[in-house]
Nucleic acid binder design. Structure first.
Lengths: 188, 188
DNA sequence: TCAGGTACTGACCGATCGGTCAGTTATGCT
DNA sequence: AGCATAACTGACCGATCGGTCAGTACCTGA
């Protein structure tokens, strides 16, 4: 892996684990075995480093939400979205965790506005497709809960579950949480 | 409200909303209409201010988990715990949000160890009372999701739901998420 | 061989951080 | 009134922050 890519990977992990504000460029440099100047050579500022680290995930999520908004939201589409979304969460858990629980704190970071906007678009989409308070709450819990679950395994001792197992269970739980009232499946 | 209590309240809100590391004592002072020195007069350090702000919630949660661990965990106890826990979440949403998604980042803050420990105790308790990966995931999602949902309402536009309504819906959702496989209720 | 670009370093900048301290104002008891 | 104590301020401290800059080692194509 190139130095630049390695710095990006390390920065993403540190931003997610310790917070953007609490992670210094100096610390990222040390973890990458470089000087602070070298990090700022590859990425001209800390903010641009964050942006570079989360951009691919953000692009993917924006595309997913756009697709969702532009098609009829029947049961099949809902099911397909959940599977896609779970795969997205598994592939970009650090980015999602970062957006979800640091989004509001990064008020003067440009890329955070994009992140907050796309989360809000998704939330509003589910708001429009349901009418009850409980269903809105279910969406928030599914989103925030999945992001938390996927990253809390790591820092609490708890054994790491293989992605394939996590994927199946998460699809089940998300389907249950996001199913509209009246069609919610009974679980055995 | 006394100055000291006001500072504590403001600090808790800011720590939860913007992160402990990203919130300066100076900022808390300005929001409270005081000088930085005045804040450090009431609370001798930033860390002690955090500790003072979250201590009541932490005491309550430790007591709740102790009660849980010391009684038979039948269906009635599970149901009673969920109701108590939801009330706890509603009363201390900021503290829980702070613990849940800043706990791991505050590695050298003493009170964070207590917070992480009690969360881990609760997680391990549910681990022991179930055997499936999915049930463990359900617990994480319920905890992280509830914390996220209760605080995301505030900073996203979304209308504030009255606590009484939130309480009922949250008890329903948490019961569904935390019910052991085989007894999970069908929802209409 | 040597010019030029890439990757990097260390010294340094102003700003802000958490925290200390001497001194000042306000309050309340005797 | 007088005085202790509580509440608070502003100046200041060393450390660290994000970021700049001049300089250097190294590789590559001409």
């Amino acid at each position: 892996m190139s130095s630049a890519a390695e710095v990006r990977t390390i920065a993403l992990a540190e931003f997610a684990a310790s917070g953007y504000a609490a992670t210094s460029v100096q610390r990222i440099a040390i973890l990458a075995g470089l000087s602070k100047s070298a990090v700022l050579y590859h990425y001209s500022s800390k903010e641009i480093l964050l942006q570079s680290a989360v951009q691919p995930a953000l692009d993917t999520m924006e595309a997913m939400v756009s697709t969702l908004e532009s098609c009829a939201f029947d049961d099949a589409a809902r099911e397909a979205f959940i599977v896609n979304f779970v795969d997205f969460l598994l592939a970009h858990r650090l980015e999602v965790y970062l957006f979800i629980n640091q989004g509001p704190t990064l008020i003067d970071v440009a890329v955070a506005h994009r992140a907050n906007a796309v989360v809000l678009r998704l939330a509003n989409f589910f708001d429009r497709s349901t009418s009850t308070v409980q269903d809105r709450m279910r969406f928030s819990i599914a989103l925030g809960g999945a992001a938390y679950m996927l990253c809390s395994e790591r820092y609490l001792k708890r054994q790491q579950t293989p992605d394939a197992v996590t994927r199946l269970a998460l699809v089940t739980i998300m389907s249950e949480l996001l199913a509209p009232v009246g069609t919610r499946p009974a679980r055995s």
